[in-house]
Design a protein around this nucleic acid. Sequence first.
DNA 1: CAATCAACCTGGGTGC
DNA 2: TGCACCCAGGTTGATT
Length: 285
Amino acid sequence: MPELPEVETIKEDLREHVVGAKVERAELLDRSLVEHPKAGEFERRLEGVDIIGARRRAKHLVVELGSGDSLVFQLKIGGQFLLVPPVEEPTSSLMLVLHLDGARRVFLRDETGYTRAQIYTAEELSERFADLGPEPFSEGFTSGYLKEKVGGRRARIKPLLLDQKVVSGVGNIYVDELLFDAKVHPRRKANSFSDEEWEEVHSAISGNLRAGIEHRGTTFSLYRDLLGRKGSHQNHLKVFLREGGECPRCGVKIVKEKVGGRATFLCPACQREDGSGDNGQLELL
DNA sequence: CAATCAACCTGGGTGC
DNA sequence: TGCACCCAGGTTGATT
């Protein structure tokens, strides 16, 4: 579930509510959370340390510790990070509880059990993130970068944009939305794009991610922010999960297909597989 | 390099 | 109600 906007929202919530607290005790309830477990080490490295910062890299949530370590979470599909009053304490699917000073607790729960966490030293962390592509809001992420990076490849655009080595933070919801905005079919080959189309794709990436952040994320079922609230971006989606609904641009029915093994929603009239249309190649020939 | 598939786990939704 | 089956916002690694 959590793509860039969702993780960004949780990170901001952590900054507001949790950064500055001390971890008194860590309770690891599901050992499968930790990627490379050594008996007791995970809990030990969290005990008594201050939480001095929170940040996001791609879809990773990074909790910075006073010890110099970083606690990194990959929430994957179903991970929830919850700071809630005791009365609303979640009881199922719990993987980790951080007992903070002031009797507060942060719960990590995940119905799917896919969430993974790991503690890294500064050096290990930069190694871990070494292969990630640029952040969509960084200076280096431009339409020129996209063209340079994948413009020569024969692969389809959707799987390329989901590849975290190309650009980090885009997931299955936002990629469908941004390709709709750019009027690009998800199956188009990257080497068929014009400069204008790279610009359209580039600006649609930032536009859609920004809107997602603005609306505090997309909640279909599992996603919650730190205080357990739903996001509202699901109310602004144009194609995702709207199979059979009308295209907001032209009124044609939205269809669902599989592209790169992933459920994919698109407008078959606005997003032509042959690339014809507003941004297409054919009219240039 | 490109495409497909299975795996990781669990719960929810659907259809019979 | 019960049950079998399919699906899931992510990522990785094997295979062809």
